[in-house]
């Protein structure tokens, strides 16, 4: 039964729907259209056929960017699926002051990636905290070039991403832990199961769905990385531009007289496929695991 005029719901939905069409759906279509043109940041652009896609095949920086993305994802995945779960178990018990700890652990998430990347830049500087301490302890003789070596820079950015992500995934796990049956834990404890065994046999299966969701989120965000690598490399993408991510390349082509929005759009399409594939694979894994 209806208790309102036919257009009332539309009046309420129209603003959100307009945004969706203008700023989500149309740009998705337009990305494809633009990728066949040579549009410039200042305007214009004519149809150039498959030229942008041919150029993609010979783009050495893109090859590095894709390799970096895969490394980023592979390293982030285990750390960010496991560590936040342990953290969530740690802050789950309502001890005095636990709200303070929860909030504090969430702080790196709330801070801008630019802010935390600038902080890490200083900590990882040739004369910064990490090198200073390591030299003092005699672990190394000279400073490690965290910010100028191709691989060290990549792994510095990865560790920054992991550090910044801990609190975020911790909160998602925390919400999920609330749904894990307490009776099971109690029963297991009565039966003499150790905390470790309860974690492996009750907690982990209890949050399995969340784990899959989180691994999807981690892979997608690792493939989309921008600010951390951009700031740590001083906007230059590391030695020889070998520390770029796909999004950094998109940003580079979006600006200036050298910019090429057509090519940037072709890169965006690459980004789309790169992020969608792991998403589908993990979702499929989830379904298989659910059937088994």
């Amino acid at each position: 039964m209806r208790y309102h005029r036919w257009f009332t719901p539309w009046v309420l939905v129209i603003p959100a729907l307009t945004w969706l069409l203008v700023f989500n759906l149309w740009p998705s279509i337009n990305t494809v259209i633009l990728s066949f043109t040579n549009a410039k940041p200042i305007g214009g652009g004519t149809f150039v056929g498959l030229k942008n896609f041919e150029a993609l095949l010979h783009d050495e920086q893109l090859r590095w960017a894709l390799l970096n993305s895969v490394i980023y994802m592979v390293v982030c995945l285990p750390f960010l699926t496991i560590l936040p779960l342990l953290l969530a178990v740690l802050v789950e018990k309502k001890l005095p002051g636990i709200t303070f700890f929860r909030t504090a652990f969430y702080t790196p998430v709330v801070a801008s990636a630019v802010v935390v990347a600038l902080i890490w830049q200083w900590i990882l500087d040739d004369r910064g905290l990490v090198n200073g301490l390591a030299e003092k302890l005699g672990v190394i003789s000279g400073p490690l070039p965290f910010l100028s070596d191709q691989w060290l820079l990549l792994f510095s950015a990865i560790s920054l991403t992991i550090w910044k992500g801990l609190g975020y995934y911790m909160i998602i796990y925390l919400a999920a832990l609330g749904n894990v049956g307490r009776e099971l834990h109690e029963a297991a404890a009565v039966d003499g199961a150790s905390a470790y065994r309860r974690f492996v046999h009750i907690t982990i299966p209890g949050v399995r769905g969340t784990m899959i969701l989180i691994s999807i989120l981690i892979s997608v965000s690792a493939l989309r990385v921008f600010s951390e690598l951009f700031i740590l490399s001083g906007g230059k993408g590391g030695p020889g531009g070998r520390d770029n991510s796909v999004v950094m390349l998109i940003q580079q082509y979006s600006q200036g007289f050298e910019g090429n929005l057509g090519y940037a759009s072709a890169l965006s399409i690459v980004l789309f496929f790169v992020t969608v594939v792991p998403m589908l694979l993990l979702a499929r894994m989830n379904r298989k695991a659910a059937d088994a």
Binding site: L20, L261, A264, S268
Partner: peptide, 16 residues
């Protein structure tokens, strides 16, 4: 639209 990472459409969004 949730499956679409924002960075994918950022260029054409800029054009809009």
């Amino acid at each position: 639209t949730l499956v679409l990472p924002g960075e994918v459409t950022i260029i054409s969004q800029y054009v809009t």
